[in-house]
Write a protein that binds this DNA or RNA. Structure first.
Lengths: 176, 176
DNA sequence: CATCAATTTTAACCTGAGTTAATGCCTGCA
DNA sequence: TGCAGGCATTAACTCAGGTTAAAATTGATG
């Protein structure tokens, strides 16, 4: 029993249009998603309405709210489509259940979680050790495609600065 | 075969004095550690010598450099004892190997990785959405013990500000 | 107990980024 | 084709936090 078989067997294909939400901060959503095609944005909304972008999710990526799926609380962030998107949806509990019986599934989950943990550690490093400007340069190096697809606003809120701030950073570039 | 049996069977107990390193940024260390007693600090050192604290590691916590143990690169951070510390050390590959054969081990690893991923997501949220002052307040709420044990310097570098900056934050508190 | 080193606080000055607001630019849609 | 709404840039002002340096406090050790 391989992971993709499991998705085929127990998963449900979902199609969403641009601007549609998969879930909203505070919702309960115990599903695990795999992106087949499209582009999504995971983002936090503060009490004062300030938006911060947690991540962009690309084809072949997987995503779920761990606080909702695993800790059984509400989702700590919202998930929205920036493009028309096709996903496979499967209950997180189903994954967990299969991981008990099938080594191959357990191993795939370990691999996914290792990837997630490393990605988050990298982001922790960037916020802890780098300036907004350095974070921007790394993003330009690592994901030039994303910069073309996504608005400046969303890039800024992903880097932890305001759109005005990012505009200044780019401008500083230009003059050197 | 339970996780702690495995540690007993294949692990090696290590005692370290205050100020001793377990590993240094750039080292290769493919081990996985569990803290039995003591206190450690994981930290990054920048090219210009600036230190940033990634995390504090307490008894019952586990720690390893994923980039070294899993991706087989050099450690991206250093690990040092802030107190005399006793750890159990086991090759990461051994854990991986046992996880292939023993469901209970695989499940424990999944549980540990879920915990790690959630901890890192929480920290990502704090850097992305909160000010240094708000991060400090959360830390005071969540870990008052730590504030008594660890120097202001290290707390500051954990919060992503300079010691001078943290002193001001505390002072601001005091006058309100 | 005295002293030296490390930690913490305070002060003065500087800088990067937030805020607000005005302007110009696209793009989608009626 | 023309308009409305979102996006990006620019400018003026403010402020949190960085930097440097000096003073005050604490701690560790001979």
């Amino acid at each position: 029993m391989d992971f993709y078989e499991l998705l085929r067997l127990e998963g449900k294909t979902i199609e969403k249009a641009k601007h549609e939400h998969i879930f909203v901060q505070g919702d309960s959503d115990r599903s695990f998603y795999r992106v087949q095609s499209g582009l999504l944005k995971a983002y936090y909304t503060s009490k004062k309405g300030k938006e911060s972008v947690k991540s962009f999710i690309l084809p072949e990526d997987t995503i779920c709210s761990l606080t909702s799926a695993y800790s059984e609380g509400g989702c700590s962030f919202s998930l929205i489509c920036l493009e028309a998107t096709i996903l496979i949806k499967i209950p997180f509990a189903k994954l967990y259940e299969y991981s008990q019986k099938h080594h191959e599934i357990a191993n795939k989950i370990i691999e996914l979680l290792l990837g997630l943990a490393m990605k988050k550690e990298k982001r922790e490093f960037e916020f802890l050790c780098l300036s907004a400007e350095e974070r921007y340069h790394l993003l330009v190096e690592a994901s030039p495609k994303l910069l073309e697809t996504v608005t400046q606003n969303d890039i800024a809120r992903y880097l932890g600065v305001t759109p005005v701030g990012l505009s200044r950073i780019k401008n500083r570039e230009h003059n050197n």
